[in-house]
Simulated assay, not measured.
Amino acid sequence: MSSTFTVNALFAGKPQPLGPRGAPSSIVKSAVDSLTVHIDCTEEDEQANKRLHGGPEKVLHQFNPTNYLTLRKHFPEGDFSSGSIGENISVDGMDDATVYIGDIWKFGDVELQVSAPRAPCNKISQRFDIPNLDRFVGERGITGWYYRVVKTGKINVGDPVTLLHREDNTVNVHTLMQCAHTKTDSALADMLAKLDVLDDEWREKCRKISNKANSGNR
């Protein structure tokens, strides 16, 4: 497998007040030249709510930059630009339909494994002051994805990005999000609930979808 992509941009942020209640959030990030990646965090990026963000299964978030074209088309009032939805990594050519759960990607010297989609929350809507924007992002399956760390080190802007490994039985990030939103494909949900490389939280979500769909068919 050869290097076919390049790190276009990296972003990091610190907690700051967001929304009408001023709840702390790190969704607002700034461009940085590099990220120092540890097994459960980066030195440059901090999470405000560590129950929902960060930790060993959500160390880094990547978002396809072309998804901003979709957001601008449907919400022209929004100030959308690379990094503004809270991602850490931006790479042209990698998207929710071509990146699979369990993929191991090499960014320079760092190795990362796709652990789960991002579950869009209302911080996205508050960030852009657009009601239900988070719902739109989820329903369209343009959420981006989280990584767990396989090999620590430093990622730099301009580093090559290489796919090292892909699971035999898995799905792309977009398919998983569609399953989570439609809640009708019990067979797929059941398969995902047993997918070891998917993080525990999402496997439990899929198990509940499968159980609910099967109970509705009885």
Rank of each mutant, 00 (worst) to 15 (best):
S90N: 10
G144I: 11
Y147A: 11
F136G: 06
N172Q: 05
S210P: 11
T162C: 11
D103C: 08
V91F: 00
W105H: 03
K151P: 07
R118A: 01
Y146F: 09
D134W: 04
L133S: 09
G158W: 06
H165A: 10
D95A: 05
K205W: 00
M191N: 14
T170P: 08
S215E: 10
L163M: 12
L188S: 07
I209S: 09
D200Q: 14
A97S: 14
N169G: 06
N172S: 07
A193N: 07
T98M: 10
H181V: 13
V114R: 07
T98W: 05
N214R: 14
D185M: 07
G216H: 03
T152E: 05
V99H: 08
A189V: 02
F128Q: 14
N211F: 08
L192G: 13
A180Q: 09
K205D: 00
T182M: 05
M177P: 10
H165R: 15
P131C: 06
N122D: 08
W202H: 06
K194H: 14
S186P: 07
D109Y: 03
T162Q: 15
A189M: 06
F107W: 04
V150T: 11
M94V: 08
P160Q: 12
G93R: 12
K151F: 01
G93H: 09
T170A: 03
F136W: 06
I142T: 15
S215I: 08
G93A: 04
A97P: 00
Q126T: 02
L188P: 10
